[in-house]
Design a protein around this nucleic acid. Structure first.
Lengths: 350, 350
DNA sequence: GTGAAAGCGCTAACAA
DNA sequence: TTGTTAGCGCTTTCAC
């Protein structure tokens, strides 16, 4: 670690005083110039910028945050950064944040409450001005820490009584109904569901919506055909293998997310099943990859852009209207079916 | 934004003085306790921790960084966060960093020098103690900014004269040779290469290594069969389509990265070509997905863990031995072939 | 072993 | 319009 007092007086990075001295103005003027205060004459402003350039000066964010109380930092915690859904989400969130002069702190909780606790704690220490917790998990007690520090927070699919906390509701209903109807129309009546891990709110919600949609379509839900997986590629393979091991199997499977569905595609292929001739597969998320699987994946789109925007808007609203009891506290992001090549009519003999 | 003086005196988050008052000690003692100084008696230490707990107190990182000059922050800039290679890399880097008491700042440059400039600037402002620039691009001038601020830096495949800057060399040679030999052994002599964007160092290096390996194997390189793509799925599709449009096409293609290869798999499928019977495909990276494509992708593995570790070690060495001229400045990460299902003998009639 | 006090680099009153 | 100055919350001498 670089320390100050190394042997030969290391040229310390320039600070605001250095700039002021070189430009022959006060540090206040330098500060004003940097912050674009209109109260600085062009003459001085020019001198200051010149000095800044010459010294290659950067303001110290820590000092700035300390005195202003604002960090211009937003946190985003996702469930698992190696699931492509989340990088795509992070990218959108960062773009929006940067466009509004914020930076972001990223963390991945891996659905582990202990990790979430650490993430939250670190973000608190960095004095983030808001946190989007998009883990879809059930680590509520942990989040209370944040809530009590009264920093704006937005959660996916979970409500907290705290007035500084908003919720993003994911409307899977529409997409899931569309998917089930699509399958039904193709002639499927035996439809299975590869669920996500039950510790995730999203997994539960998705499974419930599946059951509801099946009922609405007048189709029975075969208990054995609803299998809990873990939202990973590997889990999709394992889940489908488990389903194949059953005496009978459905002609179509709806998956709780695209990773699972891609795993199913793989497992089906390995067991000689053709998609969609022998088996129809539907995913959920519509990650970039979905368009490039073999065959291209029919899936329920959950827009990362919409989600990121909702998260940012929620945080901003919280920040701008602190204590406004009538403020919008719930945001809705919808889903819709994207039909591609992994769904078709069920095999004739079934 | 939450301001201090809102109407009804908002209960400000506890600071070190609040804790000191409650524990009936000086702020110095609180500070020592938090930082694990041995010079605090058990009696007071216990009182302090109790107060901290009771107040749900978190030290302010900005104040801490300001006075100590250390931020315990490491930056990592990747080329494109939506390429799964990078999240996997980020995850490894974060794990290592956190295990050593650091946090990370993540940015994605999207190979845009302007964005890289901004990233670098922001990281400087946050006083990161080191930056890993894993963009593989050619934005050297920008990096000089960082270099002059004499903060440790590590670059992938690019050397900077600056003594605080290390370099990670990627040894593609081994893996690429293995791949070409593997293909040659299967009977292929017509091998094409879908290159990455030439603005990336890695793309150039990989292409050169391909040419070298071909020469070593006594195989000719058909100029038309070396096509520049952009390391994306879409680019892989486009690149292969371009190749098909040619009068003749190779029986095997080596791709500059896995995303390109997965695109090729898709394009081949769409055009009725079977892999590997009609066409062999080799990727590079070995992202998690590679094992789950149809067929599973034969690819050259570039370990994210090794890369992350090299980056962290380089930064740490820089930080710990400032000005040691004899310090290791170059780190090597190697590659190796992973044979899966996308390669096989060329079609008989060729 | 503990406390008092001097800043870290900056912003924002307040003065001029 | 510009400068002076008092802290922001913390670590770290330096006394005791």
């Amino acid at each position: 670690m670089p320390r100050k007092g190394t042997r030969k007086t290391v040229a310390k990075a320039a600070d605001i005083r250095t700039v002021a001295a070189l430009a022959k103005v006060s540090i206040a003027t330098v500060s004003r110039t940097i912050n674009g205060s209109p109260a600085v004459s062009d003459r001085l402003s020019k001198r200051v910028w010149q000095a800044i350039e010459q010294l290659n000066y950067f303001p110290n964010t820590h000092a700035r945050s300390l005195v202003s109380g604002r960090s211009r930092l937003l946190g985003i915690i996702v469930e698992n950064i190696t699931n492509p859904f989340f990088p795509e989400l992070i990218q959108s969130f960062e773009e929006i944040a940067v466009a509004h002069g914020y930076e972001i702190l990223v963390s991945s909780s891996n659905s582990d409450p202990a990790i979430l606790t650490t993430c939250v704690r670190r973000m608190l220490e960095r004095k983030v001005e808001g946190v989007a917790v998009l883990t879809f998990g059930e680590e509520e007690p942990v989040l209370d820490q944040l809530a009590h520090h009264d920093i704006p927070m937005v959660l996916a699919e979970f409500r907290l009584a705290d007035p500084k906390t908003s919720t993003i509701l994911l409307d899977y209903t529409t997409g899931v109904h569309e998917a089930v109807n699509h399958l039904a129309q193709l002639g499927h009546s035996k439809i299975g569901f590869l669920a996500g891990p039950h510790k995730l709110h999203s997994a539960i919600t998705r499974e419930n919506d599946f059951r509801t949609a099946m009922k609405a379509a007048g189709l029975p839900v075969e208990t054995a055909w609803v299998i809990e997986c873990d939202h990973t590629l590997r889990g999709g393979v394992a889940g489908f293998d488990k389903m194949r091991a059953l005496g009978s199997r459905p002609t179509a499977v709806l998956c709780s997310n695209d990773m699972t569905a891609i795993g199913v595609l793989r497992a089906a292929y390995m067991s000689g099943l053709r998609v969609p001739q022998d088996l129809s597969v539907v995913g959920l998320d519509d990650i970039d990859f979905a368009e490039f699987t073999l065959p291209p994946l029919t899936t329920i789109r959950l827009s990362r852009i919409d989600l990121a925007r909702a998260a940012f808007d929620a945080l901003r609203l919280q920040a701008e209207e602190p204590g406004n009891a009538k403020m919008q506290r719930e945001f809705l992001v919808s889903t819709s079916l994207v039909v591609r090549g992994s769904t078709g009519a069920p095999p004739a003999g079934v």
